[in-house]
């Protein structure tokens, strides 16, 4: 059981976020779950407690409001004894041809993916340093390295997390804080619910395993990276894509 370790999951009510929360709850971690809607958080909280979470705190947060991130950590400082992990699952898949990307879209995507990741890491690391241990996991996408027509803005924002991960791993390693990046391939979540059957079939054929990923496939890797089994793993970017990156 991991009841003395608390993990913050941002974007906790999405597909990968909720599966990650459930995987960590089963291992007995204390959880702080954050997302935009309280009703979804409360519903998830009930499930997590049933699964064995040592405790669950909910915090409503819109990452477009950078100033609200400090409030999240003030809350954590009061509620939780020891913040051990941060998993940032928040994000939306912005799809738009280059000619149709508005300046406001750019700012919103940068805020959501990059600015929030930097600020979350900044505040989280300050709490982790107190105990000289911690783990940070960011979520990117195979699109970051491979590119995708119509996803230039999304890919640009996600690829920025590569440099962030490598740099923070170096900067925080001396404090025993590990930082890793996961690059999911096509994972069947709400994020890609609008994809047609034809698009899904095509993507399936592009993977080495000839199948699409599930949110739990990513959650299991996050769970491993959080655990002490991964104590010597940092500064890594790891794909969970069924071999899509080979295509």
């Amino acid at each position: 059981m991991q009841q003395d370790k608390s993990i913050l999951i941002v974007g906790a009510t999405g597909g990968i976020g909720s599966h990650t929360a459930k995987a960590l709850a089963k291992q007995g971690y204390g959880l702080i779950i954050s997302a935009r809607h309280l009703d979804k958080l409360e519903s998830l909280k009930a499930q997590l407690l049933q699964l064995g979470a040592a405790g669950v705190e909910c915090f409503v947060l819109d990452l477009q409001d950078s100033s609200a991130i400090k409030g999240l950590f003030q809350f954590i400082q009061k509620q939780v004894k020891h913040l051990y992990g941060l998993v940032n699952c928040a994000g939306t898949l912005h799809e738009s041809p280059l000619m149709m990307i508005r300046p406001d879209d750019i700012q919103a995507q940068v805020n959501l993916h990059l600015t929030s990741s930097i600020l979350l890491a900044q505040y989280a690391s300050r709490l982790m340093v107190r105990n000289k241990q911690g783990v940070i996991v960011f979520l990117s996408s195979v699109v970051a390295a491979q590119g995708a027509s119509g996803q230039a803005l999304y890919a640009a924002c996600k690829s920025s997390l590569f440099g962030l991960t490598k740099s923070l791993a170096k900067e925080l390693g001396g404090q025993n804080i590990r930082v890793n990046l996961i690059e999911p391939g096509f994972i069947e979540t709400e994020l890609v619910a609008h994809y047609s059957d034809e698009q899904r079939a095509e993507l399936k054929q592009q993977t080495a395993l000839k199948s699409l990923g599930q949110a739990d496939d990513v959650a299991q890797l996050i769970s491993f990276l959080i655990s002490s089994k991964a104590r010597y793993i940092t500064a890594q970017n790891i794909a969970v894509d069924g071999g899509l990156a080979l295509s």
Binding site: K70, F73, Q74, Q77, Q122, Y123, S125, R126, L127, V129, R130, G174, Q175
Partner: peptide, 21 residues
């Protein structure tokens, strides 16, 4: 710079505050 990070964490913990950047 590394010690500065540790110092900030120590001050925030000792005084139960969260400093602005």
């Amino acid at each position: 710079s590394t010690a500065h990070m540790v110092l900030i964490a120590e001050l925030e913990s000792s005084f139960d505050i969260m400093l602005d950047t």
